[in-house]
């Protein structure tokens, strides 16, 4: 192999490529990841039909993902128009999935150490007040399945239910920086327990938080 190709291969096998799997999801109706990678022919039909330009073409090359469709929730979540499932020619996106409430792209997960409402509630319960707390309901307010997929416990703590489709609009809306307080654990990824949470689990392993 020529030197340049050696470099390419080396670079493309960096573990960093799966460094941020959180908030990187398959389009609605996607089948289980191993099967998806077999079926997806990278035709880009789903990418083209998406009216919101939310589905993007991957340029990651681990496990030959390059060219496959992803939704990057931190930039833009899926608006659940369900057009993509109607055009996939191979069934990588299941065309039986047509009703937006039925799709399961993933599930939202709240980081209660960053979520503004959680922080406020903690201060409220502890009886402390330092003036830095803000009431924010952006994930709740922007959710297309507001009240069903997400609700506010005690009118303040966002909670996710099993009706969450994982569309990622909540992640897109979340105002916290630099990390979002609400993230999507994608469905259908290999290593489903670790999907997107590799670093988090390593930390747990080492006895951290």
């Amino acid at each position: 192999m020529s030197f340049i190709n050696k470099i390419k291969l080396f670079l493309n096998s960096f573990e960093d490529n799966e460094f941020f799997k959180i908030n990187r999801m398959r389009p609605p109706g996607a089948v289980e990841e191993k099967l998806f990678m077999e079926l997806c022919i990278r035709c880009s039909k789903c990418i083209e039909i998406c009216p919101y330009r939310v589905i993007k073409r991957s340029n990651l090359t681990k496990d030959f993902e390059v060219g496959t469709p992803y939704i990057y929730a931190e930039e833009k979540g899926c608006r659940l128009c369900m057009k993509c499932t109607t055009v996939c020619p191979t069934g990588a996106l299941d065309k039986e999935v047509t009703y937006f409430r039925d799709t399961r792209i993933g599930v939202a997960k709240i980081d209660d150490t960053i979520c503004l409402n959680h922080l406020l509630y903690n201060q409220e319960e502890a009886g402390i007040a330092d003036g830095t707390m803000a009431v924010c309901n952006q994930c709740f307010n922007s959710c297309p399945l507001k009240f069903d997929a997400i609700y506010l416990e005690d009118m303040i703590l966002p909670r996710i239910t099993d009706k969450c489709t994982g569309c990622g609009i909540c992640t897109e809306s979340c105002p916290t920086t630099p990390k979002k307080a609400i993230n999507i654990l994608p469905n259908g990824m290999a290593d489903i327990d670790e999907a997107g949470y590799k670093q988090y689990l390593k930390r747990i392993e080492k006895g951290g938080r």
């Binding site: 960096f14 573990e15 960093d16 460094f19 670093q199 390593k202 930390r203 080492k206 951290g208």
Partner: peptide, 10 residues
């Protein structure tokens, strides 16, 4: 090192 959780090249 025990205190290091991960070290990855970019």
């Amino acid at each position: 090192n025990e205190l290091v959780i991960d070290f990855t090249y970019h």
